[in-house]
Design a binder for these strands. Sequence first.
DNA 1: CGTTAAAGTTTCCTTTAGGAAACTTAATTC
DNA 2: GAATTAAGTTTCCTAAAGGAAACTTTAACG
Lengths: 206, 206
Amino acid sequence: MTEQQDAYPSMTISTDQSSENIAPIKLGERLKEIRRTLGLTLEEASQKTGLARSTLSKIENEQISPTFQAMQKLTNGLDINIPQLFAAPKKVNTTGRRDITRNELGKSHPTSTYEHELLATQLSNKKMMPFKSLVRARSFDDYSDWIRHDGEEFLLVLKGEITFFSEYYEPVNLSEGDSVYYDANMGHMLASVSEDDALILWVTAS
Amino acid sequence: MTEQQDAYPSMTISTDQSSENIAPIKLGERLKEIRRTLGLTLEEASQKTGLARSTLSKIENEQISPTFQAMQKLTNGLDINIPQLFAAPKKVNTTGRRDITRNELGKSHPTSTYEHELLATQLSNKKMMPFKSLVRARSFDDYSDWIRHDGEEFLLVLKGEITFFSEYYEPVNLSEGDSVYYDANMGHMLASVSEDDALILWVTAS
DNA sequence: CGTTAAAGTTTCCTTTAGGAAACTTAATTC
DNA sequence: GAATTAAGTTTCCTAAAGGAAACTTTAACG
C-alpha cells in the first residue's frame, strides 16, 4: 500500500472552501432571508408567529435581540427549526464537490494493528470519513483497550475474514461481503482470522 | 440476490428507540444539566459567560426567557453550540447498537438500472445508509434524468468497472477498489462498462 | 406626476430581561 | 451543633424587549 497520491496523475477535482464559522450569527439578516423565501410580508409573518409587526422589523434590522420565547414563536410560526435558523448562516455550498481515489492511492497511516488508508482526502468538511484498512491484528491481545469514539461506523469486509469484538456482544466472524453497522461509542476492535492480513472498508460519521 | 434475512439465523441484535422530539424545549433544565456536567458552579459559569449569577439562576429556573444575546454568551462561554443546546433535549442514547448483515442477505430493491441491497436494516435513526448495488445500466441512455438528492455519498467499486457520470465533471471510469466521494445534489449516475453487472458499495449521509 | 394602498420603520409606552446586592439554603469545619 | 463559607435564590433597580399606533417609504394605478 503506497502512501503517495501525488505520483499518480490525479483524477481528483475538488472545489472546497473550509473556514470555520465563528462569525457572529446575523440572525436578523437570516430571518429576513427566510421570510422572503417564504414569500411573506411582515404583517403575514406577524400573524403566523404572534409577534408584532414592529417587533419583527426590529429583529430583522438587529435593533433588538429577541428573547428565547420570541424565537420559539418565530420558529414555530414559520415552521423552521432552531438549528436551521442558526447553524447555517452562510450556506456552505458543497454542491459539485467530488473526490476520486484510485485503488491503493489513499493517504496511508500505518499502526501496529492496522494500516489505514484514508480515502477522499481532497475534501474537507464532509459528513463521512471513508477508510480502507488492512487488519494486521491476529487476536484480542494485540490491543491494549477497546477502541471507542463518537459517531457511528459502517464496516464491510473486502477480503479475508475478521473477528469483530465488541463490548456488549459476543465476538462474530465476518467474511468477505459481510458488514456491520454499530455505534462507535461501544468499545470495538478487529482481528484477522487467518494468517494473512484482512482488508476492510469502513466509513464513520458523527 | 435474495431478499430475506429472516431465513438466516440472524446475528442481529439491536436496541432501537425512535420517537420524534416535538416537546417544548426545557431550556433551563437542559442548561442546568449541562452546567452540572461541566462541573461548574453558577459563579464559575457566570465568569465564563459574562452573565450575572442571578441571571443564570433565573434562566435555569425558567423565571426569565433569555435574549438571543444572552444565549450567545452562554454557548460561547460554555463552549457548546446552539443546536446542541436545543436539538438534543433527550439524548438519544444509541450506544450499544449494532447490526450485522451477511453477504447477499440485505434488503433487496430491484429497479431497471440497479439492484439495491440495503444493509443494516435493523437500525433506524442512523447517520448513514449503506447499500450494496448491482449496476445494471450500460449507458447514459438508460436513465431519464440525473439522480440528485440531499446529502453526500461515498462509493466504492467492489467488482467490475463502472463509468461515473456527473453533472459538472467529465465521466470517469472506476475499477475495482476505486472510490468517489461527492455531493449528491450534483446530478450523478452510473453505468457498468463491461457486459456484466458491476457491484458497488455506497453509503449516504445527510 | 399626484393619489392611494401596501410594506416597512420609528416612536412611545408597558412589560420583561439582566445585574448588584441582600437574603436563604446547603455544605464544611472547628 | 454553632460558626463559617460556599452555592443558589430573591429583591430591587435599570436597561432593553415587545406591542400599538404614528410615521415613512415603496409600489401600483389613474
